[in-house]
Nucleic acid binder design. Structure first.
Length: 494
RNA sequence: GCCAAGGUGGCAGAGUCCGGCCUAACGCAGCGGCCUGCAGAGCCGCCCAUCGCCGGUUCAAAUCCGGCCCUUGGCUCCA
């Protein structure tokens, strides 16, 4: 069974075959560090994280690069709020992004390159384009000449004529309306940041004075938006890479322009597979900073925790859109709880002495094997994380049925295999925290105290003081401890 | 207008590439039963879908073809 992915370039789901059969070069278009990251960004991160984990599981050595756009008008617009200069504001948000990523249990990318640190590479790429006749200078700015690149439009399936019909900037120094800036002369114009400014930000004039500029063969200026990704992808990976991932809102113009400028410069394919993460929506429209309908990653982690969030973000495949609502996040919460209970139940059953009874439950063993096959098939089918999660939910059912039906005499090997599957797939691939129960001493102490309270409660129950027993249970619940009475006495979880 | 992706039960969402095991998965919500002092969890069972509309191809279509309606995203701020 081999991995198949949906490639925007061809519009088809095709077998995944990296250039080097042992490794994968993957670039993810990261964000512009001008706002706190929201759940929509987190959806992209988590899916890319799972893609990388799965590629590694398949045996590939994955080189994952994810950029930060730290030079941008929108960042300048924040000067005075989150920093005293463009560079300062960018640093502030880079730190925030890294922190948010960590809180979501993401594996780190190999490199997080920043635009501000790659200006020499950007300049030399622009020079290459000018020299080869694909770009031209005008008043200190440099533009890419779309008519010089025959395949322009192949990613977004448009033609230069289509695009020309849409554009209408009259004052332009560009030769063609679809031409785009590789290098922009001068600093930042206060008019350009006006629409992004918050009332409490510094005055536009003052903010623009802090904008970074660099010397170039065309005079002082700033890099254009699209060229950075080409330069950084080539610098940290190669001129041709295997996978380029990004949000679907980037297909045009950003990715289209990346393809054009990169391929025009090198004469080679820029990326073989273009994967686009569909957007997170809330009440019928996409979640975005500019629409202001977002939930920040930090707030969401605080409120729901990383596991619920990951379960939610993975509850539809990356290639399908997702809906955020109280209901959908609530469902994710229930799913994660169910998975976790199933896992804990399997672990507890394995730990019980009766697990050594010689019991073999073929139904359980077959179910576990089926789950493994289903999970693998789901992931290989264009990283279908929803189906993969469903397989794990089936595993939970199998464990519950077995434990319920074999009171005390368990199939140790079957359960062990189930536990391993939860850890390997749920933990290792989906990044959920199975088996990572904290051993910290304060947690252990809290556990001891809970048991003490439960002992008291058992006494009250034995004496028939149910009212008091229920009070204790309610109070524990208020503290975040869930109590369950079972045949073998009470159990609890935090 | 142009490009792209979608329209499946109360919600959410697989399945559509490669037509038949789809009398449509998993989960949430709801109902009944077992268990329980009660609750929760779990288990068993039930409820809710002629798969946007109309035609066509076929022995057979949610799945293929054509037309139409609607929604969402992009069309130089955007994951």
């Amino acid at each position: 069974m081999t991995l198949r992915v949906t490639n925007t370039l061809t519009g088809e789901t095709e077998p995944f075959e990296p250039r080097d059969p042992d490794s994968v070069l993957l670039y993810y278009c990261g964000l512009t560090t001008s706002d706190p990251p929201h759940l929509g960004h987190a959806r992209g991160w988590v899916h890319v994280d799972v893609m990388c984990r799965w590629l590694e599981w398949l045996g590939y050595d994955v080189r994952h690069v994810e950029n930060f756009t730290d030079v941008n008008e929108k960042i300048v617009a924040r000067v005075g709020e989150d920093g005293d200069s463009e560079a300062d504001v960018a640093r502030h948000y880079v730190r925030q992004v890294i922190e948010d990523m960590r809180s979501l249990n993401l594996d780190r990318a190999e490199v997080y390159p920043r635009v501000s640190e790659h200006v020499p590479e950007i300049i030399s790429l622009v020079e290459r384009l000018v020299e080869s006749g694909h770009a031209y200078e005008a008043n200190g700015s440099v533009y890419f000449d779309v008519t010089s690149f025959e395949d322009y439009g192949k990613l977004s399936n448009q033609t230069v004529e289509d695009i020309e019909a849409q554009g209408e900037d009259a004052e332009s120094e560009k030769r063609h309306p679809a031409d785009f800036a590789l290098w922009k002369a001068g600093g930042v114009d206060p008019d350009d940041i006006e629409e992004h400014r918050h009332p409490e930000a510094a005055p536009a004039e003052a903010a623009c004075e802090t904008a970074q500029t660099w010397d170039s063969p065309w005079g002082e200026g700033r890099p254009g938006w699209h060229i950075e990704c080409s330069a950084m992808s080539m610098t940290h990976l190669d001129e041709t890479i295997d996978v380029h991932v990004g949000g679907q809102d980037l297909v045009f113009p950003h990715h289209e322009n990346e393809v054009a400028q990169s391929e025009a410069a090198t004469g080679q394919r820029f990326a073989d597979y273009w994967l686009h993460v569909r957007l997170l929506e809330t009440s019928g429209e996409k979640m975005s900073s500019s629409l202001g309908n977002f939930f920040t990653v930090a707030d969401a982690v605080e409120e729901f925790g990383a596991d619920v969030l990951r379960t939610f973000l993975l509850s539809t495949a990356y290639s399908s859109r997702a809906t955020y609502s109280e209901e959908t996040i609530g469902e994710a919460e229930e799913r994660w709880d169910r998975l976790q209970r199933g896992y804990e139940r399997a672990v507890d059953a394995c730990d019980s002495v009766d697990a050594y009874a010689k019991v073999t439950d073929e139904t359980l063993r077959e179910a576990v094997d089926d789950v493994r096959v289903e999970f693998e098939a789901a992931m290989n089918d264009d990283f279908n994380t929803r189906e993969a999660t469903t397989a794990l939910l089936d595993l939970t059912s199998a464990v519950n049925t077995h434990v319920d039906g074999h009171d005390d005499a368990y199939d140790y090997r079957g359960l062990r295999r189930a536990v391993e599957t939860f850890e390997e797939f749920g933990g290792g691939i989906l990044g959920l925290s199975f088996g990572e129960v904290s051993e910290e001493s304060d947690v252990a102490l809290a556990g001891d105290i809970v048991e003490l309270v439960l002992d008291v409660r058992e006494q009250e129950r034995a004496d028939g003081n149910y009212e008091r027993a229920d009070e204790l249970r309610d109070e524990l619940e208020a503290l975040g401890v869930e109590v369950q009475d079972t045949d073998d006495g009470p159990t609890y979880r935090f």
